[in-house]
Amino acid sequence: MTQATNGTPMIRLEKVSKTFYRDKEALEVLKSIDLEIQEGAYEALMGPSGSGKSTLLNLIAGLDRPTSGKLTVAGADIGAMAEDQRARFRAANIGFVFQTYNLMPVLTARENVELPLLLAKLPADERRKRAEIALKVVGLEHRMDHLPRQLSGGQEQRVAIARAIVTDPKIIVADEPTGDLDRESANEILNLLERLNREFKKTIVMVTHDPAAAERAGTVRRLDKGNLV
């Protein structure tokens, strides 16, 4: 597919390593990774379980910090940020799509989509309006007042995508977004991600095991034992 890149790096990793410690045993999950992802790119990360792809995605999303190396996302050195700074960075720049949707079960679709806007200190009617627009983009304007349990898996994931885009973030990180869906629903989600990249110029980084999903991305990168191959 055609990516909406403009040649400016949105994500840059320079010799980034990540080591986890379990008891006294060190486990190096990412080994001196150098990577550049352009603004407007749609990239898929593939690799066997334990290859480090989710760890890499977590670093890019600002959920975790590298053990060493420099990590720049949207122009910010997020590897050097403190916990609360990273939380603010995520709220402003990152949209998340998870494999298991991770919607709040007690909130309606619209309330779930409104959640990230609560951090933007917008008036209630503005939050409501933006949430409704986001749900319209994913084609769920008629299911706004439904709870997650009243929606199908595909619809839940579309609500999650609406939540991911409602703050108009620069980057969307998707961790196995089709992993829990049937093929038809998976295709709907992949079409939607493609549209967000193409029409809304979102930079998308997606972890997937599914070759059909990876095919939709402009670039596919493979990880194995903590190395980009």
Partner: peptide
């Protein structure tokens, strides 16, 4: 736990 993790990921502070 998962809901808490999601809220944290979305940017809600400790």
């Amino acid at each position: 736990q998962r809901e808490i993790g999601t809220l944290r990921a979305l940017g809600f502070s400790r």
